[in-house]
């Protein structure tokens, strides 16, 4: 059995930091790509404010293709691309690239569905006031769907956290990496259990905080 000395504690603390770093940065960049993509989908669909079937079809197919590729495969396939973007294909920073690519289409779908929940009547009202599509996106679609969008962020965060742990198998760093290296390869179950508990705790904390924020911002209840 391994002693719980300062090295181990430090290693685990570093793991937490790496996991948070990968998850947060990937979620943010995921939204940088996924949010506009999701808005574009919602807007160009046939019920959207500017229907464009060919565009929607293309986006729809691309999103489905990327979403269907298992994350581990994506991780490996993207190695040259990752190396090109961040200079290396391993470690926390190297994991961010495939995480972003994998999360973006998922985020786009979440955003699309959140925006489609907005009552068409409100959009029509804005149109009757002479609002441009851009104004409708900024002032109606996004603010009116904010509760659903924030709930979406919470779900995305949990998913990306899970993926980041998976990236540990290929030297991705973070808690997943520790769990694999110590728990699986070295049969040190206690470290594995601790890291898994920490992953569960992180997911729970973010889930709780996200839901709390969403309901705090919801004005639809009397």
């Amino acid at each position: 059995m391994l002693n719980w000395d300062a090295t181990v504690v430090n290693m685990i603390l570093k793991g937490i930091a790496e996991t948070l770093y990968m998850t947060c940065v990937s979620t943010i960049f995921g939204y940088v790509l996924g949010l506009p993509l999701g808005v574009l989908c919602a807007v160009s669909d046939k019920e959207g404010i500017r229907p464009n079937q060919p565009l929607y079809r293309v986006l729809d197919i691309v999103i489905n293709i990327v979403r269907s590729i298992p994350f581990l495969i994506l991780l490996i396939v993207l190695i040259p691309f990752t190396r090109f973007v961040v200079g290396k294909s391993y470690g926390s920073t190297g994991t961010i690239v495939p995480l972003v690519i994998s999360a973006a289409p998922f985020i786009a779908r979440m955003v699309e569905s959140s925006i489609k929940e907005v009552d068409h009547g409100v959009v029509e009202a804005a149109q009757s006031m002479g609002a441009s599509n851009w104004t409708i996106i900024r002032k109606v679609l996004l603010p009116e769907s904010r509760v659903s969008l924030i709930t979406g962020v919470t779900i995305v965060f949990g998913t990306v956290l899970g993926y980041s742990a998976m990236a540990g198998t290929v030297g991705g760093g973070g808690l997943g990496d520790i769990a694999i290296r110590y728990g699986y390869y070295r049969y040190q179950a206690d470290i594995m259990i601790v890291t898994v508990i920490l992953l569960v705790a992180l997911t729970q904390i973010f889930q709780f905080a996200g839901m709390k924020l969403a309901s705090k911002l919801d004005r639809r209840r009397a």
């Binding site: 009757s128 603010p143 004005r219």
Partner: peptide, 15 residues
């Protein structure tokens, strides 16, 4: 041209 609707169509997240 102002317009009002059966379903009011107010922004629910704005005061």
């Amino acid at each position: 041209i102002g317009m009002i609707f059966q379903g009011f169509n107010l922004l629910m997240q704005s005061n």
